[in-house]
Amino acid sequence: MLDKILNQNQKKHYTLEQNQALDLFVLQMHDRDCEVDIRIDLTGADASVNIFGVYFASAGQVIRNRVVVNHNAPNCTSNILYKGALLGENARTHWDGSVYIAENAFAADTYEANRNLLLSQGTSAVSVPNLEILTGDIVRAGHASATGRFDDEQLFYLMSRGIDAKTAQKLIVRGFFEEVVQNAELEDFEQEEILKQLERKIDAVR
């Protein structure tokens, strides 16, 4: 099963039965405030979910994400990766991801990660990954959160090969999102569209 939440406020709850698999893609790349709230219950054995998110907050914009995944059956897998960029005064993002692994959810395999790229001063990215494990039998359980400033050395490297600042910045930001855009089950035209929106966001500055 494949589902996409594209540029809209949304609150969604999915229940996955035995052997069901869900691929979910969340995009927040328009210019309004946006809030997406997702809850996944893995209630049948061998159910699995992949969630990929891409967001970009411009000046004054607030983007919120909440993800809850409940492992309530054995052998379930969950994979969560959100990447976000922030550019402009008072661009704010808030990411909250929780994975709960119940006592009977043996052989759980879960990984959640949120990475943010701060492209300017005056931005704020809050990232709260949370993992609760109640079983002793785990295949993998990990979470990661990283927020970094735009790397001047990368910008310098590209520019030192003749590439102008704006193009270089776009290449680096595209590169940052590449991992998510590639991994999500997207059509080529959708990938292109996302990258175009990304460039528009960067072009809007200055």
């Binding site: 520019m159 030192s160 090969r161 003749g162 102008d164 270089a168 680096i172 590169g175």
Partner: peptide, 24 residues
């Protein structure tokens, strides 16, 4: 001159430790 203008004017630097860039 900006860094890119220097490069376009014909200056090239290979640094001791070249930078890595993901996704390009």
């Amino acid at each position: 001159l900006t860094v890119d203008a220097r490069a376009r004017a014909g200056i090239f630097l290979a640094r001791q430790t070249p930078t890595a860039v993901d996704g390009i």
